[in-house]
Write a protein that binds this DNA or RNA. Structure first.
Lengths: 237, 237
DNA sequence: CCCTATTCTGACACCGGATGCCACAGAGAG
DNA sequence: CTCTCTGTGGCATCCGGTGTCAGAATAGGG
């Protein structure tokens, strides 16, 4: 195990300096064209120590993001609010983390857009948030049988968050109040969709007779689905 | 450009054989411990050709998945149904792609669970589906102002799909009818959440009505086939 | 202030994934 | 048969990533 997960021993300023230098080099010469040796000489740190501190070349780009993630998770664990509200606040924290640090997040976004491998990494990062939110909602929400609802709610939230975030990343010069207004709107949107889903009751099933009557407007897939579900239990016939 | 994106020139059987051999080696010795040379000698193909055909070691694992993805996208583009219904069908296609090929998908899942880098890759794959679904819904759904709703709907769908998929991957020995029942239930759940968000108000229904009546002894597949064929052509009613 | 224990760092060696290059084999067209 | 085109294998090379070890830096106890 080489990777120092917590990376607690390093002074924050030193880490940030390396990240900034790396971002600059990546932007100038491209991510692949920039070698670890170049970053090492540019920052006065040995190549070996770079790997020790950050784990990999990609990890340099996302080092600050990792820190933000652990902050958010810690916040979530300690939050006393109602579950859905807590998760919204956590998402707000994430957006805030981006907005606070455009010097890194904006050029990183441009790099991520240009480079599939980095895009995958970014996606994995948001997936970690989604997993954390989902498990939190499942734990503090309805309990056992609601993991589907929790997962869908978390996915909705993350998607809405990223929608707003991307809007800002594409035009970071816009007034941040607009961004926050968009965020609030998006969160409202998600709340309306997610709230009934987390509190809904399960309805009992009834079958036994194969008589299907649906409006003609019903789509083909929907018909197949419903009839398929009904026929699936042979006991019914 | 080295990577042969379409990989059209290769016979499918040859590709599949390499993938199976690689999966076996990965499972036996671990992903990292297995070298490209081992895969090369095990399959009788040169190391260089492996890279040419698959692009990278990871890409061997996900080669079949890539093919499934392009199939699904092609299906989606050609689907004549109502947008949300089309996307549900596409998700059904994805699940079917997994269920059809447990020899690859199940051990791959175990590898993915064990190895963070592979997990990221898998996540990126599902993100591709999500992006495709989202853009499809935004294009065919409400139009411009609904990209948030489209994104959230796609995220919900993907999340629900993955919820069901993971359930099967963890216990692939269970009856597939159970899996499909869970899938139908999950899609139902998503539809209830996503439908109101995509349509500000429901459009008026068609005055046509479909009534399907068949003998109770008719098999599920047969029913689906006949009703599917009937609904395919609305002129018949 | 000195000696010691622990940690951090840098240099070197090495592995293996990935790519460029080139020579060659096989299929198809003329 | 020859020419072309595409796919293949072998070779050299680059570079990200890791194990190892010796030495610098730092902390701490006397």
């Amino acid at each position: 195990m080489e990777r120092s997960g917590g990376r607690g021993g390093q002074p924050r300023a030193a880490i940030r300096e390396v990240v900034l230098a790396a971002v600059r080099l990546f932007t100038e010469s491209g991510f692949d064209a920039t070698t670890m040796d170049q970053i090492a000489t540019a920052t006065g740190v040995s190549r070996r120590s770079l790997f020790r501190r950050f784990g990999s070349k990609e990890d340099i780009l996302f080092a600050e993001h990792d820190e933000l993630f652990s902050t958010v998770v810690r916040y979530l664990e300690a939050s006393p609010d109602e579950p859905l509200t807590s998760v919204f606040s956590a998402a707000r924290l994430v957006l805030q983390g981006y907005l606070r640090d455009p010097e890194i997040t904006v050029p990183r976004y441009r790099l991520v857009r240009a480079h599939p491998r980095l895009r995958d990494r970014e996606v994995a990062m948001t997936a970690r948030y989604q997993a954390a939110f989902s498990s939190y909602l499942a734990r503090r929400g309805g309990g056992e049988g609601r993991s589907l609802a929790a997962g869908v709610a978390a996915a909705s939230l993350i998607s809405a968050h990223n929608h707003v975030l991307r809007g800002w990343l594409r035009r970071p010069e816009q007034d941040s109040r607009e961004v926050w207004a968009g965020f609030d709107e998006a969160m409202d949107f998600v709340r309306r969709a997610a709230e009934p889903m987390l509190h809904a009751e399960r309805e009992p099933r009834s079958d036994h007779v194969l008589v299907a009557v649906y409006p003609g407007g019903t789509g083909r897939e929907e018909l197949l689905r419903r009839i398929g579900a009904a026929v699936q239990d042979p006991e019914g016939f």
